[in-house]
Write a protein that binds this DNA or RNA. Structure first.
Lengths: 140, 140
DNA sequence: TTGTAAATGCGAATTATTCGCAAATGTCAA
DNA sequence: TTGACATTTGCGAATAATTCGCATTTACAA
């Protein structure tokens, strides 16, 4: 069973531009990840994608995330004590905060932090490729 | 073989204040971690500690890092694709940058980034417990 | 000094992730 | 349109980091 994919206008181009083949599995996975507004881990992603396209395997989800991360299309959020989570690379950058009581992962709006990091890195003679910031915090 | 420990004036007090027992294994591990200026992972730490005190086991190194992290005495640096690394909680906060070409982990001097994060978190109604920032970058 | 909860070592278990390989398939050039 | 061929895939086995279970030891408060 492979239901029709909601038409993401760009995923084919995105893949092509990155020199990657457009496979049905990649299309399904990207569709799911794009339509999700939380930050799924591989297991979440695998289950949701399966409901749409039962030709995907867990290994392919892992491989796809890895390949898309290298292409700069996906961001991996490395957690302290839980499997990694993923999001489509946002056009407007943001960081992440884990609410230690609820376990929720919240996006921090605004680009201030990323901008400051770039500036500081530049002062040290570096250009940022990616940054993983996870702030662990509690409501005051 | 347990050679004499270099006398760290405070580790006993640190542990006591955190409600933790002072064991020889903890003393050895803390001594090693305090005297190291790089950011060892558990394996590094285990090997170096062993040379000083062969009563420690890997499991205890893991447990000690976990317990000290919860007590706020040690910071865990979660890496993207490598085992976690550790440092004694610095008095002056700093962030970390991985040089993607050399693999080196470099400390970013200055507290600007941490201060900005606190401010932004405060605006969202949160108080930061800890933050793990690893910037991946390349020399320009 | 002693009773007891906490900490330890050992090795087995768990969990996330990667890998090897044979089969399938996307793409590009003719 | 058709091959040719490198890429990608599924599967299950392998690996690597970390945690756990349990019997034994030990720190330390009383």
């Amino acid at each position: 069973m492979v239901t029709t994919l909601k038409n993401d206008p760009d995923y084919r181009k995105m893949l092509r531009d990155a020199g990657l083949r457009v496979t049905p599995q990649r299309a399904s996975i990207i569709t799911i990840l794009s339509e999700t507004d939380d930050h799924p881990n591989v297991e979440d992603l695998y289950e949701k994608t399966r409901a749409l396209d039962d030709t995907v395997s867990v290994a392919t989800v892992y491989r796809t995330m890895s390949v898309l991360e290298n292409a700069g299309l996906v961001r991996k959020l490395v957690m302290d004590d839980a499997p990694a989570r993923y999001e489509m690379m946002p056009h407007i950058d943001h960081d992440h905060l884990v609410d230690l009581d609820s376990g929720d992962l919240i996006e921090i709006p605004g680009t201030e932090i990323a901008e400051l990091m770039s500036r500081v890195a530049a002062e040290m003679g570096y250009q940022i490729v990616s940054h993983h910031t996870v702030i662990r915090a509690r409501k005051t």
